[in-house]
Amino acid sequence: MSDAVVLAADIAAGHDGDAELVVTVRYENGVVGVVALDSDSAFDIMQSCGAASSADLVGRPWHEVLKGV
């Protein structure tokens, strides 16, 4: 079983009119899924893993992205 990894991070419109970050993850079992993050959560993970932008998340192991939260 390989580590989950971020495949893409796109901006989308959330229900409340705020932008949200839709992160595409390839999970440890090979399945590709999406996770929609609100702005606080998305900025928090970007900061905690040292990503300068949403594009900077792409290619990172998912556990590394989440480790600081």
Partner: peptide, 18 residues
Amino acid sequence: IELIRGWNLHIFLMRRPR
């Protein structure tokens, strides 16, 4: 614990308190 946290970001990332 680590896997469940990663599978449930609606609880462990987006919720306040996390």
